[in-house]
Simulated assay, not measured.
Amino acid sequence: MAMEKKISTEIIDIEKLPDHVVIEILIRTRVNDWTHISCVKKQWASLFQTECFWQAALSHIYPSQACPGPIPPPLAKRRFMALHISQQILGCDNDIQVDEIVGQSYLFLKEQLQLSNMSPHSGILHGTIIDQFLTCGKSRDVAHELSSMVWLAVIDSLEENHHTFCLLKRLAHEGDQVFLPHPYATSVKVQWRVFEKLFTDFRDCFNHIEYYDMLACAKSRFQPIPSTWLGY
């Protein structure tokens, strides 16, 4: 009974903590756990929606990025998301190495591809990302490589639903319809990943005609094609 009373008292004490103290505690937990933590209490969920929380998270986790980078500063939450995504894509262990523009490009591309109506042609989106990297001082080779990494990360993050299936089919058919010079040419790795997801994650979504049409499209670009792509 004494132990239960002690635990109950500790919970009450935690509930009495002011918001700024709770924020300091929350930002020291794993970022990947924040979604689960926000489901524990309505108070904590509301804190995750405040600018104060994301400003504190930026200062604590990415102290060297306290000042905005070469792009106009968005809300703190979006900046944090961009930095966190950049860190995941680039595999950085040190926040000094994090390149915010990579994460911002990821967020831009994913938002455009997930639009409920017809999103812009992939070539336009790709060129926009390349130009952004070039404007920020990246070399042509680096811009090409970073844009490929962004595309691959976005494609892998898309939910497995009908919208994604239709999107991937359109990306597969678009390909490089017009020859574009380096670095504006879409990476072969990106084109390969589009077909790979179609023939593995969405194989059952094809009808007979669609499958062989897509297979012919793949054969026109890649030789040989993997055996795992075969077999409708």
Rank of each mutant, 00 (worst) to 15 (best):
D141A: 10
C92E: 14
L83H: 05
S116K: 12
L107D: 04
L113C: 04
Q97E: 15
S157P: 06
D156A: 13
D141P: 02
D93P: 02
L83T: 10
L75A: 15
G127A: 13
I129P: 02
K77E: 15
S119P: 13
H84P: 03
V150W: 06
Y106R: 04
R78N: 15
I96S: 12
S157V: 03
I85Y: 04
S86L: 07
W151H: 11
Q114D: 06
D93M: 03
D93A: 03
I96P: 02
K138S: 13
G91F: 04
S122L: 11
E100M: 01
S147N: 11
F108Y: 15
I124F: 10
S119W: 12
N94W: 09
L134T: 05
L152W: 05
L109Y: 03
I129F: 03
Y106W: 13
S119C: 15
M81S: 14
Q88V: 09
L152E: 07
N117S: 09
H121W: 11
T128K: 07
H144V: 07
D95A: 13
L158H: 00
S122N: 10
A153D: 10
Q132H: 05
D131S: 04
K138Q: 11
V150R: 03
F108S: 06
I124N: 03
G91E: 01
E160K: 10
L115C: 09
S148M: 12
I96Q: 14
S157Y: 01
I101Y: 00
G123F: 05
M149P: 00
L83E: 02
S86W: 08
Q88P: 01
L109P: 06
I89M: 08
V154R: 03
S147G: 09
C136P: 08
R79P: 08
S86G: 13
Q114V: 06
D141M: 08
I96V: 14
W151G: 02
L107H: 02
L115N: 03
H121R: 12
G103D: 01
L75N: 15
S157L: 05
W151D: 07
C136Q: 12
E111K: 14
S157I: 05
I155G: 00
